[in-house]
Simulated assay, not measured.
Amino acid sequence: MLPLRLSAAALPAAALLLAAASTAASAHTHDTKTHDASTHDTKAHTTVPDIAGGGFETPAVPAPSLFTTYLGGQAVGPWAGGGNSVDLTSDRLWDAAEGSQSLDLNGSTSGSVSQEISTHPLTSYVVSFELAGNPAWAPALKTGELRVDGVPVKTFSFDVTGHGFRNMGYTRQTAVFTNLLKSSVTLTFASTSPGLGGPVIDDVRVRSCLLVLCPPVS
């Protein structure tokens, strides 16, 4: 955180029918607001109801603290902390992508957060999130991974050069994975950067889609 640490291929017809039958209420559950599923193409997508705390709004960082550090093994709201530590950060320090809090994946050094979500068989899932980086500490290039059941499905990076606490420069990142038979999987966001400042994530969303109708992901 700051230099002065504060306390703290097409699917079989049967598979298509299975995936098309899945329905849910919202693309992302938030403590204070819910994203409207109508903002997505409902002919191509259905939504997953049980990603929780994707905006990192709970627990609240108590004023006047700028952030709260969670060690590996501690819960960060509905997320399970891993690695060394992470910092749940208030907009009193830097701007969130939405809401008033975001998550630095490095506390004292690289950490992670994980959450188990329910899945349907023979269905693909799109995970999206906002990405920036802690501008207070080197290195400038912050890196990390999105993993599904421990397997990386996307590597991501963000260069903080030219950015600051009120100009974080969040970019939307997406990844797709396909579930074959499991009833649930574990999503993990993990830093691969050393040091006190890592990649910053916010506004995590998950939605399901038919493989043949999934949007392209760069």
Rank of each mutant, 00 (worst) to 15 (best):
L2F: 04
L2G: 04
P3L: 11
L6Q: 11
S7P: 10
A13T: 15
A14L: 10
L18F: 08
A19Y: 05
A25L: 12
S26A: 15
T29Q: 15
H30F: 09
T32K: 06
T34R: 15
A37C: 11
T39H: 08
V48S: 03
D50A: 01
G54V: 03
F56H: 00
V61K: 00
Y70Q: 04
L71S: 15
V76E: 07
G77H: 00
W79P: 01
G82D: 02
V86C: 02
T89A: 04
S90F: 14
D91T: 15
D95G: 08
A97M: 06
A97Q: 10
Q101F: 13
N106M: 05
S108Y: 12
S112F: 09
V127S: 01
S128P: 03
L131A: 02
A132Y: 12
P135I: 14
A138D: 10
L141Y: 06
E145F: 03
R147E: 05
G150L: 09
P152A: 12
F158Y: 01
V160Y: 02
H163F: 12
F165N: 11
R166Q: 09
N167D: 14
M168V: 08
G169C: 02
A175E: 00
T178M: 07
N179L: 02
L180P: 00
K182H: 08
T188S: 08
T188A: 01
F189D: 05
P194F: 09
G198N: 03
